[in-house]
Design a binder for these strands. Sequence first.
DNA 1: CCCGCTGTTTTGCAAGGCTAACTAATAATA
DNA 2: TATTATTAGTTAGCCTTGCAAAACAGCGGG
Lengths: 197, 197
Amino acid sequence: MMRSIPSVENEIHLMSELQTLPLKAGGTPESLRTRHAMDRTDQSLIAIRRILRSTELYGRKLAKAAGLTAVQIRVLQIVAETGQATPKDIAKRMGVSQATMSSLIDRLSAKKMVERHQSQRDRRQTNVVITQIGRQAVLEAPDALQQKYVKQFESLEDWEQAMIVASLERVAAMLDAEGIDASPVLDIGDLSGRPHS
Amino acid sequence: MMRSIPSVENEIHLMSELQTLPLKAGGTPESLRTRHAMDRTDQSLIAIRRILRSTELYGRKLAKAAGLTAVQIRVLQIVAETGQATPKDIAKRMGVSQATMSSLIDRLSAKKMVERHQSQRDRRQTNVVITQIGRQAVLEAPDALQQKYVKQFESLEDWEQAMIVASLERVAAMLDAEGIDASPVLDIGDLSGRPHS
DNA sequence: CCCGCTGTTTTGCAAGGCTAACTAATAATA
DNA sequence: TATTATTAGTTAGCCTTGCAAAACAGCGGG
């Protein structure tokens, strides 16, 4: 596997693109809000998209390098968190259907990273259990955010870290707002490894 | 798309990658920095994941409602931006291979939203041109980010908007840092149409 | 014992990705 | 001029993720 990294390298220099948009924004008769507010909205959207995009591309790259896809790593992490979980729970947390989860588990189990154990209590349920191999894979899985971001973040001034956290949380809250359940995956982090007590 | 959902679907994948990080962060003997700083790092990562996740799920939903996938909308928007573009350019901007772009264009052209026209200058090149139908679709395409977020953002206090923009840009820069190109798609939004207004 | 629910898996289908291989046209070079 | 590279795009073949719907249990009441 391991194919090489796709065309990630072709880069377009976004900077230039970014600059273009302001003008368009200006097109609207500035009726409702100040020109200022508009620009800021655009700026924030652009920044969010940059975040999404770079995470996506970088993630593809890392996942490939790890021999597991991002989605697979995610499943492994969720399972690793508690040691075992039912397909339904995992599906719910990830926001995918049970059918999808079933095939994901198939693939992971073909790789010997998880095993299915029928539950004793209720034989309809399956417990997905992570294997040693799977646990190892989770530990070694490169983490896009971490690698790219953590060091830089930690080198920031204290006040700036605080500001960023507050802003990101605000944005996340605005996006969640609609009721999409957001969280599931989030806490994952905890499990893995944080010493978490 | 800006407005479109960035490949929301892809994002999904990435999401997963993100998750792991906590552990690693935790792995370090808290020698170098205070527990405080650590928490902030985790908080920021978690918030980013929330952003990624809700964008992804919401995007899937909207794309379905629109009858076009997020990726397709994205292509349309890029083409709409200038009226025409070569497959190669679009692929480059989106960070996918030419082969992938070729099939995307096939699908869009089956829907009569774009047409292929051989270039006169260089007959190896194809110009992908958006049709009236395609243009209409772009205008009507719901935009995940926009719909969920814009209104709320615009209702924030001025200082808060400024803070958020600064923070998001900081984060985006840190993520881009590695050299993954980030933005291309971003500015598209403008054209599509934020109701702007 | 039969019915209805409830977790899972199967089936069948589509989108999006990729690499490799192939075609066509243009550019370079002998 | 003829040959060779390069470049743009498409094709073929494969994989993963997703979903809905149908099929399979297994559990609980009646």
